[in-house]
Write a protein that binds this DNA or RNA. Structure first.
Length: 198
DNA sequence: TAGGCCATCTGGTCCT
DNA sequence: AGGACCAGATGGCCTA
């Protein structure tokens, strides 16, 4: 969607030393904390859950807060790296603009559905018995789950069920790989490596 | 200028 | 106890 120059950003990118030395208000920080505090005070007449006397000095609390902020930044960076990795494996047409997070997730979901559909079409009733599931034969559990996923919004329970099929997916991939890729001397080693990864 | 997207801060809760 | 995770708040950047 948009490419951004991140250069001038992060006015909040707190200068840690300054943060340690000055209280938030002095540093002209927004009053969101006190607002939240007000809100909490209004909403609840219950006694505060926290003891009034905290074991940390103001300076220590501030230090711990800064450490938490740093960890949170690192966590978000990792999350963003994961989003970036996902963007790179999703085929899409907007090469010049970065996909937003919501677009990335939506496209990934559609891509998975599309791959699932392709697998089912290619396998065409020749799924391995472990996947086929059963004695009943013709309709695979994979197919049933796929129909469920396409037919309605995902509930948590269904997603959990679906995730348990991951192992089965691996078997499907192995099956299709072996079925459609004829071994040659050239690719034999590569295939072995690929299968190990699956 | 409004609205979308994002990074960061923050405090609460969960988990190990 | 302390770190991870989460969601709300805030403000900057960018585009239509």
């Amino acid at each position: 969607m948009k490419t951004k120059s991140k250069g001038a950003k992060r006015k909040h990118a707190v200068h840690e030393d300054a943060a340690l030395q000055e209280p938030a208000q002095k540093r002209n920080e927004p009053l969101k904390c006190s607002r939240r505090q007000e809100k909490r005070n209004k909403e609840s007449s219950k006694p505060a859950a926290r003891p009034t006397k905290l074991p940390w000095s103001t300076k220590d609390r501030r230090l711990r807060r800064l450490e938490s902020n740093e960890r949170e930044r690192q966590r978000m960076h990792k999350l963003n790296n994961a989003f970036q990795a996902l963007r790179e494996v999703i085929p899409h047409v907007r090469a010049e603009n970065k996909l937003s997070k919501i677009e990335t997730l939506t496209l990934a979901k559609n891509y998975i559905k599309s791959l699932t559909s392709t697998i089912l079409r290619m396998s065409n009733g020749h799924l391995p018995s472990a996947i086929d599931g059963s004695t009943s034969g013709s309709r695979s559990k994979l197919y049933e789950h796929y129909q469920q996923q396409c037919g309605e919004e995902e509930s948590t329970e269904q997603l959990q069920k679906y995730s348990t099929q991951i192992h089965s997916f691996r078997q499907v991939f192995r099956f299709l790989y072996l079925r459609h890729c004829q071994p040659t001397q050239d690719n034999a080693e590569l295939r072995t490596k690929d299968l190990t990864r699956l």
